[in-house]
Amino acid sequence: MSRCAVLGTALVLLLAGCGGSADGDAAATPSDDPAGPSGTLTVFAAASLTDVFPDLGERLEADHPGLDVQFNFAGSSALATQITQGAPADVFASANGSQMAVVTDAGLAAGEPRVFAANVLQLAVPAGNPAGVTGLADLAREELAVALCAPQVPCGAAAEDVLAAAGVTAAPDTFEEDVRAALTKVELGEVDAALVYRTDVTAAGDAVEGIDVPEAEQAVNDYPVAVLADAPNPEAAAAFVELVRSEEGQQALEDAGFRVP
């Protein structure tokens, strides 16, 4: 239903022929400019943004006919590696500061990265919670099948912090390569619990239940976004970042379970 509303809004904006960007400090909203962004925009975004960014991309495309927005969703660290190896990306949205730092340290970001959202970890259990998980302490139970993200990826680093803050020594059965892989195993009912982002629990719908963990406040992940220095399409990149940080973009992020600054 929210998708309908989104499409409807986009259509109205398109028909009215005026950009609806609510960002007051922008000198000109993108579609006031007849030339406007066009061509292809390539956005490299953290896997956890999979359910929000395509909608925003469609809105931008609706505002700018002739613009084609492409997404590459993967673990932030994999994306950072791809960017430092010369992948032709316009925008990088990372799930934590340290992977953004990999890109900025290499001098590959244009300007300062801006934090546009934050995510906290939540315990995800299969629908019905068959193992009766109630909190972080259950992750130490040997008889449960438990998935954590690998410490090399942001959700794993956050999980380590949260577990340390709670004083829990988890007994995981697997260290997943990214947060969506951990979530998939919960959805399939193959693990009894996993520490994933709140947004992933929201995205999984009825197949997964989320359990809040107070200790998660110890490791809130900030999501920075930056236009890249070698962006093939800097104009469209700036428009996308602006949309993400606009009221409209922030609302979409909030609906998906993110916290917004």
């Binding site: 998935a147 690998a150 995981p172 059965d173 697997t174 260290f175 997943e176 390569e177 892989a181 998939t184 195993k185």
Partner: peptide, 13 residues
């Protein structure tokens, strides 16, 4: 392997 067996040092990594 990483999907079905997961990733755990010593057992499945």
């Amino acid at each position: 392997t990483i999907t079905f067996a997961g990733n755990f040092p010593g057992t499945t990594q």
